[in-house]
Amino acid sequence: MERKNELMNSVLLRQNPHNVCEWLNRVTIYEGNFEKQIETFKEAVNTVNPKIQVGKVRDLWLGFAKLYEDHKELDAARKTFETAIQSQFGGVSELANVWCAYAELEMKYKRPKAALSILQRACAIPKPGDFENMQSVQARVHRSPILWAMYADYEECCGTVESCRKVYDKMIELRVASPQMVMNYAMFLEENDYFELAFQAYEKGIALFRWPSVFDIWNTYLVKFIKRYGGKKLERARDLFEQCLENCPPKHAKYIFLLYAKLEEEHGLARHALSIYNRATSGVDRTDMHLMYNIYIKKVQEMYGIAQCRPIFERAISELPEDKSRSMSLRYAQLETTVGEIDRARAIYAHAAEISDPKVHVKFWDTWKNFE
């Protein structure tokens, strides 16, 4: 009865010797017996076949190294990791996790150079002939984003600006960087006062990704560029905005148009700003058109008065969806009433009445009735 758990576990492992979870249970059963636990781990990593594993063989290797670490046998833990990185795994991410755990072990015991050296080995591009099978996980692990992200983090903490740049540039060259990694790179350069290099990093990221993934990079790049140069490099800023809007999907265009128009208002020409608002009314998503028309009309009214707003109101009423068209008509009619153009206002109400059911749009008919 005392050995019941062990015997049950043996039965389950005979049924399926490739079950990682049961091997870990077996290690737990031998809690307190270090020699037996080590023996179990050795047997487990030699038995489990990654091609038919249940669970992840990575967990066995990590548990094995952790056991040595807990007993302060760090050299044995390192040897375990060295054996692990040569072993077979079910996928690249498993091997990447083992490399990361190996580097974390060195970092934990205040050996940053050793940790960086491990990650450098992990991310090294294999030469032809390094591996018999170039399809093995060892030959492909250098493209793992998990490894590169950790390598870049450690370089930021312990390396130099130059060594960190090399890591990020290599990541972009291999096309394993995510949009977030590109932004981290640019922010790192900014913190070290390399502003132009930071802008180059954004541009490399823009070349790497397509919409909508590239939206955050463009957004951050444009904001930082305006903040840094304001109106000093206006032509360059305009080029950037035009480049951004060239392939920008309508769903993401609203914020870019507003930023572009704000730049022109503050540092450029008023008529340029108005032409951008004009482009925005047809360049954004249908859900944002109403907002863009409202902003455009407000700006034109402030600069040129109501006469110039009329064609914009008319275009908005014809292009917007019914609900928004109706509210735009009411606004237009109220504006005409304010300046005493009663006949014009009446004509607008009459036009909008065609898309307004008296039973449904009671508010519209009440407004017209009150007007009369």
Rank of each mutant, 00 (worst) to 15 (best):
A270D: 13
V300G: 06
S282N: 04
S282V: 10
R315V: 08
D285A: 11
Q308N: 14
I317D: 02
A280V: 10
C309S: 03
E264W: 00
E314R: 07
D323V: 03
I312G: 00
I276V: 02
Y296E: 02
A280T: 06
S327M: 02
R315I: 07
M303I: 10
K324A: 09
I297C: 06
R286M: 15
Y293L: 12
E266S: 09
S325L: 01
G305Q: 11
K324V: 05
E314W: 03
S275Q: 13
Y304Q: 14
S275W: 14
I306S: 14
K324N: 10
D323K: 11
F313D: 00
A280P: 06
L274P: 00
R310N: 03
M328Y: 05
G268I: 10
I276R: 03
K299E: 07
S282L: 04
L320S: 06
M303N: 07
G268E: 12
N278I: 03
R271K: 15
L320T: 09
I306N: 15
M303L: 14
D285P: 03
E264H: 00
A280L: 05
I276S: 07
G283E: 12
E302Y: 11
M289Q: 13
R279S: 14
S282P: 01
M328A: 02
Y293N: 11
H272C: 15
S327P: 00
M292C: 05
P321M: 12
Q308E: 14
A270V: 12
R286H: 15
D285L: 08
M292L: 08
N278C: 12
A273F: 03
E264R: 03
K299M: 05
I295N: 09
H267R: 10
G283N: 07
T287N: 14
S327V: 06
V284M: 04
I317K: 01
M289H: 11
Y304V: 03
A270K: 10
S327R: 00
K298I: 08
N294A: 11
V300N: 02
E264A: 05
L320N: 06
A307I: 08
I317H: 02
E322G: 13
I306H: 14
M303Y: 11
L320M: 08
Q301V: 11
A307M: 05
G268R: 12
V284I: 05
R310I: 09
I317Y: 03
S325W: 00
I295V: 13
I312D: 00
E264P: 09
N294W: 01
H267P: 07
E302S: 15
Q308L: 15
D288N: 07
L263E: 03
T281Y: 13
V284K: 01
R315M: 06
M289G: 11
S327D: 05
Y277F: 14
K324P: 00
Q308S: 15
A307Y: 09
Y304T: 04
Q308I: 11
N294H: 08
E264L: 02
M289F: 10
G305N: 12
Q301S: 06
I276K: 08
E302W: 11
E319P: 01
K324L: 05
R310H: 07
I297G: 07
H267L: 13
K299C: 02
D288G: 04
G305M: 06
E264N: 04
R271C: 15
N278V: 02
M328I: 03
R326K: 14
Y304I: 06
P311V: 01
G268L: 13
D285N: 09
I297Y: 11
Q308C: 15
E322D: 14
Q301W: 05
R286G: 15
L320Q: 09
T281E: 05
A273H: 08
N278K: 14
